[in-house]
Simulated scan of single mutants.
Amino acid sequence: MKLAGELKSFQDRLGYEFARPELLVEAVTHASVSTANRDDNQRLEFLGDRVLGLVMAEALLATDDKASEGQLAPRFNALVRKETCADVAREINLGAVLRLGRSEMLSGGRRKQALLGDAIEAVIAAVYLDAGFDQAREMILRLWGRRVHEVEEDARDAKTALQEWAQARKQQPPEYVETARTGPDHAPVFTITARLDTGESEAANAGSKRQAEQAAAAALLAKLESRS
Rank of each mutant, 00 (worst) to 15 (best):
V151E: 07
G108M: 10
L14I: 03
D49M: 12
T84D: 01
G109H: 06
G70I: 04
L14R: 06
R181V: 14
G117V: 05
K209G: 02
E225K: 15
Q163H: 12
A166S: 12
M1W: 10
G199V: 05
G183D: 05
A215W: 01
R111M: 09
E164C: 01
V127N: 03
R75E: 04
E202H: 12
E200I: 01
V189N: 10
N93Y: 12
A96M: 11
R111G: 12
D65M: 09
K82G: 06
L94G: 08
D185K: 13
D40K: 01
E17V: 12
M1I: 04
N37D: 11
M1Q: 12
A31F: 02
R38E: 08
R147T: 01
I124V: 15
T193I: 03
T84W: 00
A168L: 09
Q211T: 09
R156Y: 01
L98W: 04
I192A: 06
H30Q: 06
A31T: 08
R43D: 13
S34D: 06
L54G: 07
E69Q: 05
R43S: 12
E83F: 03
A219N: 13
A187S: 15
L224P: 04
S68Y: 03
G132R: 09
A62E: 15
Q211P: 00
L7R: 06
A125M: 10
A204G: 05
G101A: 06
L60F: 08
D64G: 06
N77K: 14
A194D: 07
A62V: 00
A222E: 15
E45V: 04
L44R: 11
W144D: 07
G48K: 08
E202S: 14
A73D: 11
D154F: 07
R102H: 11
F10A: 08
A215I: 00
V97T: 04
D87V: 07
A217H: 03
V28E: 08
G48I: 05
A4F: 09
Q167W: 08
M1D: 11
F18D: 05
A67E: 08
A187L: 14
A219R: 15
G95Y: 06
R195V: 06
E178L: 15
R99L: 15
G117S: 13
G145K: 14
A59E: 14
A187R: 08
L44G: 01
R111F: 10
Q71T: 11
A219C: 03
D134H: 09
R210D: 12
V97K: 05
A168P: 00
V28L: 11
M1P: 02
R210P: 00
E138F: 00
A89N: 07
V28K: 08
E121V: 01
A27M: 08
G53H: 07
G5C: 01
K8C: 02
R111S: 15
P174A: 09
L61V: 13
L60Y: 08
I120W: 05
Q42Y: 09
K170Q: 14
K209F: 03
L24H: 05
R99A: 13
A217V: 06
E58V: 00
D130Q: 10
P173C: 06
V127D: 03
S103H: 12
K159H: 01
R13T: 02
V123L: 13
A217F: 05
K170G: 00
M139S: 04
A4H: 11
